[in-house]
Simulated scan of single mutants.
Amino acid sequence: MTDAATHTHADASAGADTPARPKLAVWKFASCDGCQLTILNCEDELLSIAEAVHIAYFPEATRAVVEGPYELSLVEGSITTPEDVERIHEIRAQSGTLVTIGACATAGGIQALRNWADVDEFRSIVYAHPEYLSTLDTSTPIASHVDVDYELRGCPVDKGQLVEVLAAFLNGRKPRIPTYSVCVECKLKGNVCVPVAHGTPCLGPVTQAGCGALCPTYGRGCYGCFGPQDSANTDSLTRQLAELGMSNDDIVRVYRTFNAGAPEFEAASNKVAAGGAS
């Protein structure tokens, strides 16, 4: 008997009076697998999660495959090939709720830097036979191609926020995820403001909370891992970064990292690249 058949048989023999557990699928597109590993790193919570949902498709964790439809799909990674476009539409069609996890899935990821580059040139330099490759000129978030029910930010996602999203799904409520800036987390932890006290460039004022102000806690500026917060004033931050001595090229680079394809960061970097910080 196959693994999939074993799962199906076990569910069928559980009894007609036992509610079926919702089926969970975890999908990967262009990414580093870090957000999937965050699921596996939920050590204390993983057994409870496994008891509450039927992990039907998760190649990072198991070879067993149970056919859809799936009540919940978690999607990691960005769309970078024509095949990706077709596959995400297939996944959307068989998913009741679709949640994108991580910077790649929500903003195109670090690979979105290709959006400002000559992809043909990259291919010709890296591959001996680039004619065999089928790729897109851009790396785009999942929401650019299908409807997404919820986006979970981070590079990688925060374990606590991931568990909150799963708990919210199981209880039929909206996840309680902050949309304010990393600056609030710094204040809650009693951190000294690194731009004010040390003149250290920091994206905290325009970045969504979720990391616990990890970098500022250790005296470093925020790198924007969780993408733009809900009212990001990038014009003001750009002026501050320039006052701290950053060149236009450096300012463009700090906006074009993990969340380069996020609309607010993309617009800010384009504006600076055109001379907007001078």
Rank of each mutant, 00 (worst) to 15 (best):
A93H: 09
C193A: 11
T38S: 13
E164Y: 00
F226T: 02
K187P: 10
L244T: 08
V192M: 12
A12R: 10
V119C: 12
S13G: 10
D147E: 10
L214N: 10
N248M: 07
L237V: 14
E86T: 14
V148F: 04
K174R: 05
F258A: 15
T100Y: 00
T179R: 02
N233C: 13
H129M: 13
L152H: 13
L170E: 11
D158R: 00
A268P: 01
S13Y: 07
A52E: 05
V196M: 11
P263Y: 00
S73L: 01
K189M: 12
R220S: 04
V272W: 02
G219E: 00
P82A: 00
A143Q: 07
F29L: 00
C35E: 05
T234M: 09
D118G: 12
L166D: 06
L170C: 01
N171S: 14
V163C: 08
A197C: 13
I125N: 14
G245C: 03
T207R: 00
G68S: 11
G221I: 07
L136V: 15
A30G: 14
T18W: 03
E121K: 12
T234N: 09
V148H: 00
T207E: 05
T8Q: 13
E243H: 12
E243M: 08
T81H: 09
C35F: 03
R176F: 12
N270G: 13
D235Y: 06
N115W: 10
P141D: 06
A30K: 09
P263S: 01
L203E: 09
T179G: 04
T200G: 07
R114G: 15
V252R: 10
G34V: 00
V26C: 03
N270S: 13
A105D: 04
R87T: 01
S73D: 01
I91K: 11
S134Q: 14
S78P: 14
G172D: 15
Q94K: 07
I125S: 15
A30S: 14
R153F: 02
P59I: 00
G261Y: 06
P228F: 02
D33I: 03
A273M: 06
A93P: 12
T238M: 07
I49R: 10
V146Y: 11
A112F: 14
T179V: 12
P59C: 02
E67V: 14
G190K: 14
L162W: 05
C104A: 04
A143N: 04
V163W: 10
L74Y: 00
T2F: 04
A103V: 06
I55W: 09
G102Y: 02
G154E: 04
A167C: 09
